[in-house]
Design a binder for these strands. Structure first.
Lengths: 116, 116
DNA sequence: TGTCTAATTAACCGATGCGTAAAATATCCA
DNA sequence: TGGATATTTTACGCATCGGTTAATTAGACA
């Protein structure tokens, strides 16, 4: 019970079907039937994938007569990348340089008259 | 069986203990005992978290006498953010502007003499 | 009202995840 | 060799996940 937001987001993204659904939704809203069409899994299975995505905040849903339309909500993806940004200096060359630069100016200001 | 790489990465990140372990490793290599110290879970549990992280490529391990040292490997995080970058235009204002710009120049080059 | 379509919920099943305690392994060192 | 320390493997329990089929709900419409 009571799972933190980031865990909900990452575990929602851990399933390839759900990632494919998000990819489809990046091209526009779609109903459950439309979303289910490319997969050979049952409609209830898709319906529950959508519930997982909704709980993670990755989609929002609206009703139009008997159709329920899903819409991509990218904010959780922003949150997830923001979390990963802590680690960017470990892979991004420009961040590695920035990191070195920041260390240098930090060092210079802390030890203005350092010898050697 | 045979889970794709991105799913391995995201499901590894879905656990808060594992994310905390990565955070710790961003400050430097550490042994299993050192990594386990902040958590009130058993050593075997930590050991298996490390195996999950290793399978996802998020850490590498080396042996030094009876100690096994873990080291952060950020490449999978780069992969994950790269995947999310497809969706960046949905949350990043500067990407929204870039997107609009690209649409415009695309439109201009395809319909050079368009009226109105 | 009854019926059609869209979607969800319920009940179930097998696999996996995360924890435990206990046993096994690996390496150092006396 | 035998003991001490570090770590992993095994065996187990329980909860969750991802799928199924069958039943139910929601809304349109004749």
């Amino acid at each position: 019970m009571s799972t933190d937001r980031l865990s909900l987001i990452f575990s929602a993204l851990a399933d390839p079907t759900r990632r494919a659904i998000l990819a489809r939704l990046s091209e526009g809203e779609a109903t459950v039937n439309e979303l289910a069409e490319p997969f050979d899994i049952s409609l209830p299975a898709v319906s529950r994938h959508l519930k997982v995505l909704e709980n993670a905040g990755l989609i929002s849903r609206s009703r139009n007569a008997q159709w329920r339309s899903s819409k991509l909500e990218a904010e959780p993806l922003r949150e997830a990348t923001e979390w990963m940004d802590r680690y960017r200096r470990f892979w991004d060359a420009s961040f590695v340089r920035l990191d070195a630069h920041l260390r240098k100016i930090q060092h210079d200001s802390q030890d203005p008259g350092v010898k050697q």
